[in-house]
């Protein structure tokens, strides 16, 4: 596969472009119906959600506002493991507004829980989650996942925003990896 150029070994395609597009369209229609007449701000999580976020927001037929949020592990003098900090905060005021956070994949839900905690401090009306992929068996945190594209198991996946050491995000489909490199 030219896009990977031998950097990563793919076992099989799990969801191809047509399947993803159809599912995103369905989710967009549901979100459009659920938020009709409401002020909705859709926030994409950098970097994994970039393609899903881009397709999903265009499938929502409402005058939404969009923003993006990024976070990372920052070294900290008081902790050996460092701390998780927002590296790119949202620019739009979300107080009193409906917020939909868009993720690429949710496994344990710890990072999503972290984001929700941070966004809640900005006093939105409510926060819901949309994720392309969800592993319900691994979900530890009680987080409000309202919309998801596909349920997944423990396999390592790549493409449509998901990476392996930063490679493979730009694959237009979702594929299973031989094993995480």
């Amino acid at each position: 596969m030219k896009v990977l150029d031998g950097t990563v070994d793919i076992t099989k395609k799990v969801y191809d472009e047509e399947v993803i597009a159809a599912r995103v369209k369905e989710l967009g229609a549901r979100i459009t119906a659920d938020y009709k007449g409401k002020e909705l701000i859709v926030i994409g999580v950098i970097k994994g959600s970039v393609y899903f976020f881009s397709d999903l927001t265009r499938a929502i037929d409402l005058p939404i506002k969009i923003d993006m949020i990024g976070f990372g592990n920052i070294p900290d003098t008081t902790s050996r493991t460092g701390v998780v900090k927002i590296t790119k905060d949202i620019d739009i005021d979300i107080s009193g507004k409906h917020v939909l956070v868009v993720e690429d994949v949710i496994r344990t839900g710890l990072t999503t829980a972290y984001l929700i905690q941070n966004l809640e401090a900005k006093c939105p009306a409510d926060i819901e989650i949309a994720t392309m992929l969800l592993n319900p068996d691994r979900l530890l945190m009680t987080i409000p996942v309202k919309y998801y594209g596909f349920e997944i198991s423990d396999s390592w996946l790549l493409g449509y925003g998901l990476d392996s050491n930063e490679v493979g995000r730009n694959l237009p489909f979702i594929a299973q990896l031989e094993k995480k490199s």
């Binding site: 999580v45 994994g48 959600s49 990372g72 592990n73 493991t81 460092g82 998780v84 993720e103 690429d104 994949v105 496994r107 344990t108 710890l110 990072t111 691994r138 979900l139 530890l140 009680t142 423990d154 998901l162 990476d163 050491n165």
Partner: peptide, 23 residues
Amino acid sequence: TNVRIVYKKDFQELIERLKQFGG
């Protein structure tokens, strides 16, 4: 009351995240 079990594989994955941070 909500109780969840954190399995060995969950724990290992979280430890892995400490090394290579990601979604």
